[in-house]
């Protein structure tokens, strides 16, 4: 009754911006800026305050029906509770990994899980080849099967250092430390300026930051 009158219904996961700020690289103001962004994304097709796969695709590709292996994997990893949608808490926690100030360790683990297509705890050679083929399919690049095999083989030699036919997390970390560019997708510079991108409520957020 009275309680609900005082408290407008909020998006699931939005109840604790200070908790989210404490547990991610974002400040409370930035969490609130992300909420503005989240509201747009999560109501773009279905007005329910949750990001559905099609809304995610619409944001990335301006086309709700465009499928992409890697976008699918990112969506699945953002969907921490694995219920088919991304709520605000999942959105903030997952984007936090892409923050320029996030731990490299977290970025490495996220990328590893992304590439572990079948979630076996290892990146397998077949998965690597499947990902290369998926990229070729979406690009103009044409390579013969022999060329693809050669690229995958060479990478595999560098990566599977213990020669057991699969890349485990430790091997992945070694490979990344030798080739830091492999993590370039794991940092989104936009996240440094998120309050500038969504300034409409920054003033009120700053007041609340001081109170907290």
């Amino acid at each position: 009754g009275c309680f609900s009158l005082k408290r407008p219904k909020q998006t699931p996961g939005y109840e604790k911006p200070s908790v989210l700020a404490a547990e991610t690289p974002f400040t409370v103001s930035e969490v609130k800026a992300l909420y503005e962004l989240f509201k747009k994304l999560s109501n773009s097709i279905i007005n329910d305050g949750l990001i559905h796969k099609e809304e995610f695709q619409l944001a990335l590709f301006r086309n709700r029906y465009r499928r992409n292996l890697f976008a699918d994997r990112i969506f699945d990893l953002f969907d921490i509770k694995r219920n088919g949608v991304i709520d605000f808490e999942e959105f903030v926690r997952s984007l936090g990994v892409f923050h320029p100030n996030a731990l490299v360790e977290d970025k490495m683990k996220f990328a590893f899980r992304l590439y572990d297509l079948r979630q076996t705890g290892f990146i397998e050679r077949e998965e690597l080849k499947e990902m290369v083929l998926a990229l070729l399919h979406e690009s103009e690049l044409v390579l013969s099967d022999d060329e693809v095999e050669m690229i995958v083989d060479n990478t595999w030699k560098d990566a599977d250092t213990n020669g057991d036919g699969k890349i485990d997390l430790e091997e992945w970390k070694e490979l990344v430390s030798k080739n830091p560019s492999l993590l370039k997708n794991m940092t989104l510079p936009y996240l440094k300026d998120i309050t500038m991108a969504f300034p409409s409520f920054v003033l009120s957020s700053e007041v609340e930051d001081t109170e907290i």
Partner: peptide, 24 residues
């Protein structure tokens, strides 16, 4: 051929999350 398979993959449009931040 020194192309790294993981480098090739990283060019996928699926990794470009900047679309999330663009004005709709």
């Amino acid at each position: 051929c020194n192309l790294n398979a993981f480098d090739i993959i990283s060019y996928s449009a699926g990794f470009d999350l900047s679309g999330l931040f663009e004005e709709k």
